[in-house]
Design a protein around this nucleic acid. Structure first.
Lengths: 351, 351
DNA sequence: ATGAAAGCGCTAACAT
DNA sequence: ATGTTAGCGCTTTCAT
């Protein structure tokens, strides 16, 4: 017979030094085979009520935890996904990560967090590492401009959120309606009376192809305002964009060009712009109106608070997870492109 | 002989659908045994230069990635740690997470991110889940007031950062010098001329035992200011502490008690207090001086910017990792308590 | 209803 | 220098 000692003292065996039990141990103690233990522990059916209760009681009593490594090895799935983010300490990405973790946990997936720090090599290494850890899928907010063959391993499903590598038509993407967002932001400034609107682009190889530039351009076109390339500033990605934006605007002001509005493609850049304006003693919104992007703390907290674009990170995250889990399960994912709607948030900086 | 086709076309085999190769496959292709392949791939030595080059070339050519599940199962270690945080979207914890991930990656560990949302049951479940995933260790910023036997599995090394469960003398803790921090903050207000200083405590069962209260009390004692319990406010943890603090201060102001300083035990609470003061048309710092805790965006961004306590999340994170990795390797960890120094950051709210 | 045994990919002890 | 083999903990097929 099996030994029932401590059966009632749940999780508190005589020897404090609990060695990890395997189903083999449980089987030995209970006097059934490991196959039966496995069946019971996984609710597979095909055993007597009596056996079921016995095994479950034993497992509970000994604080049995399954070994997911063994399980994964056997089943070729790990109930684990990888999340690659550029900067987890950034409010926007952190919020994204929160919702991704939430959704995943709810669906019984654990998530590896990988901070690429916008470093291409690091990101590539993470792909390999995640493949090695046998993740079932990867959610990627990529800094790479191309997800080339050599960095994608073994048909692991990948979903890109927000940023995404170009030239790739096979990887599903979840993104904000960026053109529309930029249009809304620029239009908002125009409707508030702005004509000389500076656009601060984030660092990118070719801004002219970027959605936010396109939306800015479209709004100017729509309202018959000529586009002046001198009004397009670009951060370099060397320093935090707040710092770079502050320098950019400070330098711009020195040119004596007219300016009555700024559309920054990130809240951080908008904040830098705000500081530059303050230092130049320009009143916001009276003299220059300002709008950012992302609806993060960077726009919510300063005085004046900065108008911005709310991108719904929760929906971005959940859509991303949903698509990824569908891919993992081999289900149809519908469209390869998912566009999440945006909404304009009006604050003091553009009143 | 083994088949060298595509040996030069690294990572781009004929068939795009790369099936995951195992060392068995590599062995078969190369004509050596799996043991030799394993040796080469792990630099164990004991093979000819020729074999080494052949295997490595093959592995590279086929984009071989090791199966960490199998490796972990065999070696009983996963090169993986778990990180339990109350709220990853919170600036302070996100920064902590960033540095923990950084340090871990540098030491070849991957990290599972677990967001407990301050939910006790969720946190307990994460402990079990992490045990099941065979993590080598856990870094925990716990919401639990006790890490009881039944939630600690299988001798997995645990380190607590910042918050930590009471009544436990066996789990190493990395924390800020909270008593001193609170003393510094309160003393700072006193030196700036404050006498009627409200203390906003975070939600806790018994604030009188808490370090931050103790530091506050000590400062009052030191400067001969009597402690008045009416000046100790406590958030309830139901709403975001910013909201709760705003209500607490608003209600306090209605009592008509004298007030010329506020020490909040978190930046978020300080921010709420600031809003309450603003709405009551009390000038900060002229009429009421304010200091927070953590040096997050919540104190850095508002106008007036809020004085605060810098806690050095980078050092907290790195010390935590260092101790955990030492435990994992069975090394001596030195003291069970690691205290990370703090520094006062003076900003506009207490000028 | 239950058991025996194979095998997932890997490492290491023990050959040779 | 290299090969053979056992076994990590688990699920599953095939018996019984």
């Amino acid at each position: 017979m099996y030994n029932l000692y401590n059966l009632n003292k749940q999780g508190d065996n005589m020897d404090n030094h609990k060695k990890k039990l395997s189903i083999k141990d449980i089987a030995a103690i209970s006097g059934v085979s490991i196959a039966t233990v496995s069946r019971v522990l996984n609710n597979k059916g095909g055993y007597s009520k009596e056996t079921e209760e016995k095994i479950n009681a034993l497992a509970k009593s000994y604080g049995y935890v399954s070994n997911m490594n063994a399980k994964s090895l056997r089943e070729s799935k790990s109930q684990t996904i990888g999340l690659i983010v550029p900067d987890i300490s950034n409010d926007f990405f952190a919020t994204l990560a929160l919702h991704i973790e939430n959704y995943s946990a709810k669906h019984n997936y654990s998530v590896f967090i990988c901070n690429s720090a916008n470093n291409v090599q690091k990101e590539k290494d993470y792909f390999k590492s995640l493949a090695s850890k046998c993740v079932d899928g990867i959610i990627c907010i990529s800094g790479l401009n191309k997800l080339t063959e050599d960095i994608i391993y073994n048909d692991i499903p990948i979903v890109c959120i927000d940023r995404y590598p170009e030239n790739n038509k096979t990887i599903p993407r979840i993104s904000s309606d960026d053109i529309h967002a930029a249009f809304l932001a620029t239009e908002h400034l125009i409707k508030k009376g702005c004509r000389d609107i500076v656009f601060i682009s984030s660092f990118t190889a070719d801004y002219e192809k970027k959605e936010r530039y396109l939306g800015y351009k479209k709004a100017l076109d729509t309202y018959g305002i000529p586009l002046d390339k001198n009004y397009i500033l670009q951060t370099q990605g060397k320093e935090p964009s707040q710092i770079e934006a502050e320098i950019l605007i400070t330098d711009f002001l020195k040119t004596q060009r007219r300016i009555d509005g700024i559309f920054a493609s990130s809240d951080l850049a908008a904040l830098g712009a705000l500081y530059a304006l303050k230092r130049a003693n320009l009143k916001v919104p009276e003299q220059v109106k300002l709008i950012g992007f992302d609806n993060t703390l960077y726009s919510r907290l300063p005085t004046p608070s900065i108008s911005t674009i709310e991108r719904n990170p929760k929906m971005l995250a959940e859509k991303g997870c949903e698509v990824l889990l569908n891919m993992i399960q081999g289900k149809d994912i519908g469209s390869i492109d998912t566009i999440v709607p945006v909404v304009l948030v009006e604050r003091e900086s553009s009143k």
